[in-house]
Nucleic acid binder design. Structure first.
Length: 538
DNA sequence: ACCAGTCCTCACAACCGTTA
DNA sequence: TAACGGTTGTGAGGACTGGT
């Protein structure tokens, strides 16, 4: 009691002084800036800021229990938010934001499916927060440490912040495995040894168990690639191909090789300088892989130039003997048989490349009947390993697989030839599916018999009724596709009246420096500035 | 005891990005 | 688009310290 009176009077005086001082604007400003700086430094301490947050939130919740307070706050907030949203941005500023925004490319990696996304498509959260935000969920939906560990890419597990694409995020929040999750759906690319990874295109063809013959052409002035007609998938006897490559005397030797469709053709399918030693090394490694074993592909170790090159030059005689013992190359009658026994000097100096046609005489296999044609055709990507199969309960279509592989952080699947190959394969896949559907539909309505199909009249009727080729409407550019588009446009015209304005737009990607910078960054992982991009000559 | 200066703490407001 | 929650700033009360 006594203690109260003393300090009270003291304090009364003290506050008055305090307030008087504060009324001086200069003094107040000084005090404020002092306070702010100390606060800022204090708030840098994570423990302190966490405590402050906790305090703030608990008191805030209590405050918000009062309906009057809540009403006041929300009306205040509403006003300010509406004000904020109604602010008109000046043109220059808007332009600046736009210019900054278009610099963003698909650089952001989803920690679950490893696909690349634009910044807006991805959300980032702390690992801890994901686990902590469990309060409202039932026990079986709670995200556990083990669940996260099994989802996130192993090489990124150590990070504090995790980024997920919206698809994966929605699944994770419900504690489901995302469909495209690399770990759970077995989508990871196999590790490829450097020898195989660095093979040149033709060297890759030499060790591949399938050659997908495609007509890839350059279009227009910017030389983009397009595929013409279909893919002919030819199985190859790898052993015969590799062993028929002439061997230069030294290991570092390089020879020029032309890959022909047929020996009698004039133009080569591919022409390139290759190192036979590398081809051999790669072939040897590939022979130990699951798919190559499945295809019973083996090499004769005695023929390996990597082994031979270490021996003296007089061993070359032995090599020749070994060569002559080998069964002769097929394709009799061709005057341009590749001569594997050309003297070395002629080989190395000659302007005429060694020509060979490993696919000649082999029967092509339709792609949809060859389950591993892709993996076998692109050993630098798949290294003789089959594509992973997702576990039970997760269904991924072929297009889903392509989606995942092409958008993957690992850019290995994004080679022009591979993409065009996938495109054709996907198209065939789509067609066969559609055919099945059409047949099923018509089989339900009117039972089709073998006799009917053989009857020309029946087929003509089917064509007249559209049912025979309607399935093609999914294929861009087909007559049925344009038919479908025409119908859509006519429907629009009927609904909204005739068109008044047509706009044709083109991306003009060669005059799009931001895109070139983005490509450089995603594909080569290199930073390139806008000026350099503008200087690129097409 | 008084005074002046400085620092600390608390509640709340304001702002703002994110999300349902 | 309202609501939520993280962050920062503000104003007030009050404690501590050292000097007179």
């Amino acid at each position: 009691m006594v203690a109260l009176t003393g300090p009270e009077s003291f304090h009364g005086l003290h506050f008055a002084l305090h307030q008087k001082r504060r009324s001086d604007p200069e003094y107040l400003a000084q005090q404020l800036s002092r306070d702010n700086s100390t606060r800022r430094s204090r708030r840098e301490d994570p423990e302190y800021s966490a405590q402050q947050l906790l305090r703030e939130n608990s008191t805030r919740r209590l405050r918000r229990l009062d309906p009057e307070y809540l009403h006041n706050e929300s009306t205040r907030d509403k006003l300010t938010q509406q004000k904020r949203r109604s602010i008109r941005v000046p043109w220059a500023k808007a332009l600046e934001t736009y210019n900054n925004n278009i610099k963003d490319g698909p650089f952001h990696r989803c920690y679950s499916c490893d696909r690349l996304f634009f910044a807006t498509q991805i959300s980032t959260t702390d690992r801890d927060k994901l686990i902590k935000n469990n309060d409202k969920k039932s026990d079986d939906k709670k995200i556990t440490e083990e669940f996260l560990d099994s989802i996130v890419l192993p090489e990124l597990l150590v990070d504090v912040e995790y980024s997920f694409c919206s698809t994966c995020m929605t699944a994770i929040k419900q504690k489901k495995y995302p469909r495209f999750n690399i770990n759970h759906s077995n989508l990871r690319f196999p590790d490829v040894p450097d020898v195989v990874k660095n093979l040149t295109p033709l060297a890759e063809r030499c060790v591949a168990a399938r050659i997908p013959f495609m007509k890839i052409e350059q279009v227009s002035f910017d030389k983009q690639l397009k595929i013409k007609s279909g893919v002919v998938n030819v199985p190859i006897d790898v052993r015969k191909t590799v062993e028929s490559i002439p061997r230069p005397p030294e290991e570092s030797g390089v020879i020029e090789i032309s890959l022909m469709r047929r020996m009698e053709y004039k133009n080569a399918y591919l022409k390139e300088m290759i190192r036979p030693a590398d081809v051999w090394a790669a072939a040897r490694l590939l022979c130990d892989t699951p798919l190559y074993k499945r295809e019973n592909i083996t090499m004769n170790p005695e023929m390996d130039p990597n082994v031979l090159s270490s021996t003296a030059t007089d061993d070359m005689n032995q090599l020749r003997i070994a060569d002559s013992n080998r069964p002769e190359e097929p394709v009799p009658g061709s005057s341009e048989l590749p001569d594997r026994h050309l003297p070395e000097e002629t080989l190395l100096d000659s302007t005429d490349a060694v020509r060979f046609a490993p696919g000649e005489g082999e029967n092509p296999i339709p792609m949809y009947m060859d389950p591993y044609c892709e993996e076998l055709a692109f050993p630098t990507i798949w290294f003789g390993h089959p594509r992973g199969v997702p576990p039970k309960g997760i269904r991924l279509s072929f297009l889903d697989h392509i989606n995942s592989e092409i958008r993957r952080f690992d850019r290995r699947a994004c080679r022009p030839d591979h993409i065009l190959f996938l495109h054709k394969k996907a198209q065939i896949e789509q067609l066969t599916k559609q055919v099945n559907i059409v047949l099923r539909k018509s089989a339900q309505t009117n039972n089709i018999t073998a006799a009917q199909v053989r009857n020309k009249q029946f087929i003509d009727n089917a064509v007249n009724n559209d049912s025979a080729y309607r399935f093609m409407s999914a294929i861009t550019g087909s007559p049925a596709y344009f038919e479908a588009q025409k119908k859509k446009i006519m429907a629009t015209v009927r609904q909204t009246g005739g068109f008044t304005l047509f706009i044709t737009m083109s991306a003009a990607e060669t005059h799009w420096p931001e895109l070139l910078v983005i490509l450089k960054k995603t594909v080569d992982k290199e930073e390139d500035n806008r000026e350099q991009a503008l200087e690129i000559d097409f």
